[in-house]
Amino acid sequence: MQVTSVQEHERVAPPEPGTEPLLFPSSEWFEALASVARSQPERYRRLGATEIRIGIDVGDSGWRVVFEDYEVTEVAVRHPGMAVDCTLSASPEDWRELVEHIRERGSADPTHTLNSLVLSGTRFTLSGEDQLGVDRFYRFNATLQAFIDGAKDVLTRFA
């Protein structure tokens, strides 16, 4: 297992070629991000079993991404009362900067990893009602980082 984000990994099947840029944020965009992850089953198997329901809030809009075993099993628009272990939130502008950065560099640089962004706590926040749910963000952090780094393969346009 190569855990550094700069490494290329084997792919069983390439993600959808996606000639049309997908709007960020949208369900289609997060589905495409999940497809990138699903196209690298060996990488995710070696990162290890993952059990987390993570909320991703982009301004006033939110999604829930569920990881079970070695894969993403659900991407859904978030509704009130939908259970999550923890939530990653930032403004649309800050998410845009992160996504553009990953697309340009190929992976998050040291100032843009998810943990760095939420630890500095100025633009991105990590929250949750239950600390043990928040702790899952740390327990499965390499998987979550690999997931967001997959944005490099999602052709993206912004509103």
Binding site: V3, T4, P110, T113, S116, Y138, R139, F140, N141
Partner: peptide
């Protein structure tokens, strides 16, 4: 992990962080 200035240092702390959280 936050303080790491390189991808390698980041990856070290990311991996130990996961174990520790367990």
């Amino acid at each position: 992990e936050f303080l790491g200035k390189t991808d390698v240092d980041k990856s070290i702390f990311r991996m130990v962080m996961q174990d520790e959280a367990r």
